[in-house]
Amino acid sequence: MRKSGKLRFKGEGHYVIIGWSNKAQHSMNEIKEMDDKAKILLIDTLPESPVDHERFYYINGDVTDKTILERANIQQAKAVLIFTSDNEFDPITADGKSLITVSAIENYAIEKDKDIYTIVEVLKEKHVPNFKHANVDELVISGEALSNLMAKTAIHKESSRLIINLLSRKSGVDLWKVKKREIWKTYNDALEDLKNLGANLISDGTDFNLLSKLEEPIPDEAELYVICNKETYLQIPET
């Protein structure tokens, strides 16, 4: 029954993947590499689970059905990743399905009075405004992101290697989000402390201009990102 996706998931803090594809499988592998205790749950209509792993769970059914979301315990998930299928090439159809899916999840979140973190793959950038009322946390533009990367590589030769190596776990380093420490009053405090630990502070959210504001105070709501290996990340104190 577990293999056919008929059981109810009773855990929490899991990652939910909506729609199985090569991209979804790759994301699953990356999550497992970054978090070796991660529990991953797939919702799809496949006849049986595509993965046989003790921390991989499968729910068979229509994701817009509230009973399926309940069986996946989606309100207790750490994040929900919504992918388009490998054989869907029409961006209008693909993004339309994703919009319906995330709308169903967000409506369920409102009903349960829970904040469900959703990440959605979008094929066309011009469709992004259509998602603004769906309360999506993050949108990833897949096809056009590749086009932008190829354009930048054409101008700045071999620049794609830098980005691809950062995205790949094979490089030995990764992008990590860290909490602001009490001893960090300015961005320079954080920069120097992290540098001594072996981590490179690169941004506050999407703001990459930290070198021009080193003496400015770090706001309490800052979202600091660093580049380092996993061992270094685990050594960064949280307080």
Rank of each mutant, 00 (worst) to 15 (best):
residue 89 F to D: 05
residue 89 F to N: 01
residue 89 F to L: 03
residue 89 F to H: 06
residue 90 D to L: 04
residue 90 D to W: 01
residue 90 D to S: 05
residue 90 D to T: 02
residue 91 P to E: 04
residue 91 P to L: 04
residue 92 I to H: 03
residue 93 T to S: 10
residue 93 T to M: 05
residue 93 T to P: 00
residue 93 T to I: 09
residue 93 T to C: 00
residue 94 A to S: 12
residue 94 A to N: 05
residue 94 A to D: 07
residue 95 D to F: 03
residue 96 G to D: 04
residue 96 G to M: 04
residue 96 G to P: 00
residue 96 G to V: 07
residue 96 G to L: 08
residue 96 G to I: 05
residue 97 K to H: 03
residue 97 K to A: 01
residue 97 K to V: 00
residue 97 K to G: 00
residue 97 K to C: 00
residue 97 K to P: 00
residue 97 K to Q: 07
residue 97 K to R: 13
residue 98 S to C: 10
residue 98 S to H: 12
residue 98 S to A: 15
residue 98 S to M: 04
residue 98 S to K: 13
residue 98 S to E: 07
residue 98 S to T: 05
residue 99 L to F: 08
residue 99 L to C: 01
residue 99 L to D: 06
residue 100 I to L: 11
residue 100 I to R: 11
residue 100 I to Y: 11
residue 100 I to D: 06
residue 100 I to T: 08
residue 100 I to F: 08
residue 100 I to S: 08
residue 101 T to S: 14
residue 102 V to C: 02
residue 102 V to N: 00
residue 102 V to M: 11
residue 103 S to N: 13
residue 103 S to D: 07
residue 104 A to I: 01
residue 104 A to H: 03
residue 105 I to R: 15
residue 105 I to H: 07
residue 105 I to P: 05
residue 105 I to S: 02
residue 106 E to P: 00
residue 106 E to K: 15
residue 106 E to M: 12
residue 107 N to C: 11
residue 107 N to V: 14
residue 108 Y to L: 01
residue 109 A to S: 10
residue 110 I to C: 09
residue 110 I to L: 04
residue 111 E to V: 08
residue 111 E to D: 15
residue 111 E to K: 15
residue 111 E to R: 15
residue 112 K to A: 01
residue 112 K to G: 01
residue 112 K to I: 09
residue 113 D to A: 13
residue 113 D to V: 11
residue 113 D to S: 12
residue 113 D to N: 13
residue 113 D to K: 14
residue 114 K to I: 10
residue 115 D to E: 14
residue 115 D to A: 12
residue 115 D to M: 14
residue 115 D to Q: 15
residue 115 D to G: 05
residue 116 I to N: 10
residue 116 I to H: 10
residue 117 Y to N: 02
residue 117 Y to K: 15
residue 117 Y to M: 10
residue 118 T to F: 10
residue 118 T to E: 10
residue 118 T to V: 13
residue 119 I to V: 15
residue 119 I to F: 13
residue 120 V to S: 08
residue 120 V to R: 12
residue 120 V to H: 07
residue 120 V to T: 14
residue 121 E to R: 10
residue 121 E to D: 04
residue 122 V to R: 04
residue 122 V to W: 03
residue 122 V to P: 00
residue 123 L to V: 06
residue 124 K to P: 00
residue 125 E to K: 14
residue 125 E to C: 10
residue 125 E to L: 12
residue 125 E to G: 12
residue 126 K to C: 03
residue 126 K to A: 03
residue 126 K to G: 01
residue 126 K to D: 04
residue 126 K to H: 09
